[in-house]
Simulated assay, not measured.
Amino acid sequence: MTENKPRTRQDLLAFLDGLGIAHTTKDHAPVFTVAESVALRDEIPGGHTKNLFVKDKKDRYFLLTVEENAVVDLKQVHTLIGASGRVSFGKPEKLMEYLGVIPGAVTALGAINDTGNDVTFVLDADLMRDDVINCHPLSNDATTSIASADLIRFMEATGHKPLVLKVTS
């Protein structure tokens, strides 16, 4: 695989603009956990996300994007997403290689960096009922708000067909 430099927030926002996708981005102090980002809720409406980067026994990678307070049963989720056996968390090196982000900045918008289609993106059905989804724009010092339908359009434009499944309890 050739080493590609990950796309930046500016690249991402330009890509969204090129697709005619409306988005707003709000800068804030870096947040590494859902707990740290709770303070932003009043300022940023819509569904806020938690992202789980996992792999199965065959080293296939998945990004599960769910509502921030949702619970994912990691012992059972493989049966829902088509993984081989139980999943475990992917390593930070793979996160950077495939999605171009560091832990704490994981985002469905990382699909823009997955040029080899190495990751299966799973969007929780409950989250997708929100009109607006909030994701990091490849860094954890901002939040980008995008319509849920446009998130799917964006993913398809990056060559991904996200699975919209109920993966939370």
Rank of each mutant, 00 (worst) to 15 (best):
D42E: 15
L40F: 15
G104S: 08
F62M: 00
A105T: 12
N113S: 12
L80F: 07
D124Y: 13
P45V: 13
A108R: 10
D124V: 05
A125M: 13
A70W: 07
L99Y: 09
D42P: 03
V66H: 02
I112E: 02
H136P: 02
D118G: 05
R60P: 07
T79N: 09
I102D: 08
D126L: 09
F89Q: 06
D114A: 05
L127E: 09
R86Y: 03
E97W: 03
M128F: 05
L123H: 02
V119P: 01
G110K: 11
Y61L: 02
G100L: 05
L52A: 11
G116E: 06
V54P: 06
G110D: 07
L109S: 01
G110S: 05
G100I: 10
M96G: 07
K94A: 11
K57A: 15
D42A: 07
L123R: 01
G82H: 14
T120W: 00
V106D: 01
H48K: 13
K58E: 13
L95V: 12
A105N: 00
R60G: 04
D124R: 01
T115E: 10
D59P: 12
N51W: 05
N134T: 14
L80T: 06
L63W: 13
G100D: 08
V101R: 12
A105M: 11
A108L: 09
K91V: 13
M96N: 11
K91F: 14
T65P: 02
N134G: 15
Q76K: 11
Q76L: 03
L52Y: 12
K58Q: 14
L109Y: 03
L95G: 04
R129P: 08
H136V: 07
F62G: 02
A108Q: 01
A111D: 04
A70G: 00
L99S: 02
G90Y: 04
L99R: 01
V122F: 07
P103V: 06
L52V: 09
G82R: 07
K75F: 09
L63C: 03
L123M: 00
N69C: 00
G110P: 04
L127N: 05
L127C: 04
R60S: 03
H136E: 06
M128K: 11
V71I: 06
V87R: 02
L52N: 04
H78N: 14
L64E: 01
V122S: 00
T107E: 08
L63G: 02
A83Q: 08
T49Q: 15
H48E: 12
I102N: 15
G110Q: 09
V66S: 08
D73E: 03
L95I: 14
F89A: 03
F89G: 03
G104I: 04
R129N: 08
A83C: 11
D131K: 09
L95N: 01
D73K: 00
I112Q: 01
T115Q: 00
K94Y: 12
G116T: 14
H48W: 13
V132G: 06
A111Y: 14
E93I: 13
R129C: 02
M96W: 14
L123Y: 08
N134C: 15
V132P: 12
V106G: 04
P92G: 01
R86Q: 05
G104K: 07
H48C: 11
S84T: 15
V132H: 08
